[in-house]
Structures are given as C-alpha cells and as structure tokens.
Design a binder for these strands. Structure first.
Length: 188
DNA sequence: TTAAGGATCTCCT
DNA sequence: GGAGATCCTTAAA
C-alpha cells in the first residue's frame, strides 16, 4: 500500500454521474493502514457497517462522511480482510470544469475547486452511493497517466494519533496549486 | 434510545 | 488565525 500511494499520483480519476462527467489528475494522496494505524477508521480491527468497504479486496471505493458535511473518497488497496486504503486529497481538474463549478458554487479562488478531500468529492459528485463501487466500473475508474515525482510529508488532520500522525504517508506533487494547504507546512 | 465525537471547509477579522 | 456548521456512526444503558 505504501508503494501504491505514490503510484496514484499522476493517474486520472474519472467519475460519471447522471448530470455529466468529471475527470482530474491526482496530485495528492494519503495512505491509511489499519488495524495498526491509529489514525485509520479500521484501527483495532474494527469491522463495522460504516467501514465495510475498507475490508473488501482492493480496487473498490470507500466513501464516508466527516463532520456531517464532507464526503471523502478512498481507493481500497489491500487484500480482502486487510483494511488498507489511499485517501484522495487533491486533483487537478481536466474535464467537466463547468460541472464542477456548478456543484461547488461561486468560488473566490479557482484553485479551491478540488484542492482538498471534501472539495473534490463535492466537485466530482461523490456521495454515499459510490461507497463500495468498483474502480473499474462505468461510473468510476482510473486512467494511467505520467508518473509524477512524489514528495512526502506527515498526514493532515490526525494530530491526536501520536507517532502515527508523524508517519510520512502523505504523498503530493510539489508546486501544484491543486494540493490542499496543510495546516502544518509540508516538510521536505 | 441517548450522548458524544469526527481523515474538513468557509467566512470573518 | 480562529470559530461555527451539521449529520452519521458508534458505544452504552
């Protein structure tokens, strides 16, 4: 999974919805590795209705809601019974710009369209009905792209996870304006 | 059935 | 740089 995460950078995420198609190049991801990873939803080996998709064989989507407002899109990468996933945090829009703007509403900063996990999920129309969907379906799939140079840093939003929070399991493309802004400036 | 908390975003200063 | 929004999931009685 730690090898899969950097390989995701540069790939193109495509989501087809009834109201249109959206596509973008992945420029930022985070790796989560349960059940040891305290920051992961699967920490402790908990297999619940919510994170069921995490335990499926790799290649499906794990979609969940945080703070009652924001959806997050993960790519499950483990074997069946091994909860491992890559969280997609930032993409560079390629197709469906108009559609994304519609779904996101008026923005002060053009780059805010997809520069964050909650933002891109909304821009791409990702919601609960995509949870468990295969990444090879017509609705949701990945295209190969040029391998981009990955930089690493600590993950974001997992401060209370102790040493696990400091693991450099966030991979991003340095210099891309579509990378979400880390609260703690990226090391490296 | 109830209570508590969360892998964030946005606006305002 | 700081605080509020908002609803789903989980655990306990």
């Amino acid at each position: 999974m730690l090898t899969v995460a950097p390989e995701c950078l540069g790939k193109v995420l495509v989501v087809q919805r009834p109201d249109g198609v959206a596509a973008g190049r992945i420029v930022e991801v985070e790796a989560y590795r349960g059940p040891e990873d305290r920051a992961a939803h699967s920490f402790g080996g908990r297999h619940t209705a919510r994170n069921h998709s995490l335990w499926c064989a790799g290649g499906v989507a794990y979609v969940f809601l945080v703070y009652g407002l924001h959806w997050h899109l993960n790519l499950v990468t483990g074997l069946e019974g091994e909860p491992q996933a890559v969280l997609i945090r930032g993409v560079e829009p390629l197709l469906g710009l108009e559609l994304m703007r519609q779904r996101r509403g008026p923005l002060r900063d053009e780059h805010a369209l997809t520069s964050g996990p909650g933002k891109l999920a909304r821009a791409f129309g990702v919601a609960r009905d995509l949870d468990g969907a295969a990444f090879t379906s017509e609705t949701l799939f990945l295209l190969d792209g040029p391998r981009l140079p990955a930089k690493r840093s600590a993950r974001i939003g997992v401060d209370d996870a102790g040493a696990w929070a400091r693991r450099p399991w966030r991979y991003f493309v340095a210099g891309s304006p579509w990378v979400s802004r880390a609260r703690t400036s990226a090391a490296g």
